[in-house]
Amino acid sequence: MSSTTTDDSFQPASFAFSAENLAQAQATIAKYPAGRQRSAVMPLLDLAQRQEGWVSLAAMNVVAEMLDLAPIRVYEVATFYTMFNLKPVGKYHLQVCTNLPCMLRGSQEIVEACEAELGVGLGETTADGKFTLSEVECLGACVNAPVIWIGDDYYEDLSVESTKAIIAALKRGEDPKPGSQSGRQYSAPASGPTTLTTLAGGDA
């Protein structure tokens, strides 16, 4: 991982919150007692990332100024959390979990399927700038492994086919249904309920 950002060709010269986000940022800051504004650093960085898709240096500096922080304090936070993207990412950021439980459930094939469908490797963005493929650590959804995280949604219980279907849908600009792709409800047993089977209204 590169540290000091020597190559900053992709960094925009400036950043400004949109009017709507600015209002939300100020509302967030107001949640904290006077003198404790720095607590709002993560919500504000998240807001910046939602606006631009990633957190640029200019955005971090704007956040630092809004919270009366030294810029380095914001850099520390933004670089600590891998969920803040420090480089531009595509419209759809596919984050494939490859930790142990997902791996045991075939995440390697999922990664390969993504690579084949998108034509890019891990950590790369497609030429049209629509998709970025990343490998991430445990997403905390092991019971539904393997998992891909796109935008605000988890796509779980993936198979090579369902992965390809999701990517195809995204390519068409559709909104594929998040959650378990195998049809089970949430994390209910894959083979159907084993308890409370007589409960009325149970649809699984």
Partner: peptide, 20 residues
């Protein structure tokens, strides 16, 4: 003059100014 900090984490933790 807060210009130094620890950026990234774990194996990748680096002490520095982040922006040169």
């Amino acid at each position: 003059v807060p210009e130094l900090g620890g950026t990234f984490r774990g194996e990748h933790l680096e002490i520095g100014t982040y922006v040169e």
